[in-house]
Write a protein that binds this DNA or RNA. Sequence first.
DNA 1: TATTGTTATACTCTATAACTATA
DNA 2: TATAGTTATAGAGTATAACAATA
Lengths: 153, 153
Amino acid sequence: MEPYQSIGWTAARLARQLEVALATVELSSAQYRMLVQLAQGSEASTPLARKLAVSAPSVTTVVDGLVQRGAVERTYSAEDRRRVSLALTEIGQGLLVSAEDAVRGRLESIANELEDEGLAGNAIRALALWGEALDRARIRRHSLQREAEVVAP
Amino acid sequence: MEPYQSIGWTAARLARQLEVALATVELSSAQYRMLVQLAQGSEASTPLARKLAVSAPSVTTVVDGLVQRGAVERTYSAEDRRRVSLALTEIGQGLLVSAEDAVRGRLESIANELEDEGLAGNAIRALALWGEALDRARIRRHSLQREAEVVAP
DNA sequence: TATTGTTATACTCTATAACTATA
DNA sequence: TATAGTTATAGAGTATAACAATA
């Protein structure tokens, strides 16, 4: 049997390995994504939903869990009282550090399967390449969205 | 703000993009992983759980959904009547083709953000590298598990 | 009226523990 | 007794639709 090779299959297995690694620190992928996003600065709910590519109610649900754990704090804006500012607490920052350790450990140990060919580093660097691509795709997505709003609000 | 760069963050965003792509064909990541695994040959439930790194009840749940859609068929073994053979139907095969199209489309369009530097192909090929690493890691996981069973059943 | 965020509701995935049927 | 698979149960993420509060 020739190995099944598809970009999706690889991404899907990588995703599952991520979940397994995060489970060791009792975090879900969604919670982890939220922590990372908030580590890049406090934000309101709506832009978070856009950046994380989820619905508004999903943000509420995920944040609820993190608030309960003391990892995230909700602050209500004084100027616009509809808006909520979401921010990492110290607990949240520590949790994120633990999560990064767990994930890096598991994914690097997988990449190290390629060390005989000296390709482990290539694999790690390649993910950084995808990081850059994802950043740009997000920017494009958001600017297209703004255009769409102008055309058909 | 310097970009947040971590192997986990990249994997997590890639995972979310996969989910979004799969949603267009009304598949979850778990269902997609099951379809791909079964496309590589029919299997019983227990080895599937091991290979997909999930619990036995998760296999039951995911397969239930796919059986309901006519994508997977359960066949009960005559020799050992506890065992179930899980196999893709033609519908399941077609569904997998649609899923692969959707996923390839979305992930390649993300990789194409790097085309100006001629790095889009590198990103795609790099995922194949991870595919190989994941294959080897799975083999290692399974052989370690067998050893553990021998030592402490 | 439009926007922000939440609530209501429903479905799926996940796990552990308990159970059934079979070996 | 041990194994294969399911059922029971609980918790989390996801979405759409409906809602409240605010602008």
